[in-house]
């Protein structure tokens, strides 16, 4: 799981063009949106693309996306439970 979370962080860094950010800088349990990493609605849409391309998970409603992207931990658990590839 630790390796998976690190891989996921690298994917997020790439998908969101967070050039220069290291996976260690993203806390597993910190909120990705708002006061944590500071992501917003556009990032949420970018991560929906990431989930579909990398894991075959389709999310149609952006509001559902925001629940899944609460933190790296929540996201990793969700992907493990729902991944199609």
């Amino acid at each position: 799981m630790e390796d998976f979370k690190r891989a996921l962080k690298l994917q997020i860094i790439e998908a969101l063009s967070l050039q220069g950010m290291q996976p260690e800088e993203i806390d597993d349990d910190a909120p990705l949106f708002g006061d944590g990493l500071g992501l917003d609605s556009i990032d949420s849409l970018e991560m929906i693309v990431l989930l579909e391309r990398n894991y075959g998970i389709k999310i149609e409603d952006p509001r559902e996306g925001r629940r899944v992207f609460e933190s790296i931990q929540v996201m990793a658990d969700y992907i493990q439970a729902n991944r199609k590839k």
Binding site: I42, L45, E46, V49, K58
Partner: peptide, 10 residues
Amino acid sequence: EGTLNPTPFI
């Protein structure tokens, strides 16, 4: 025309 990254469009 599937799920696309919005950033280049914006």
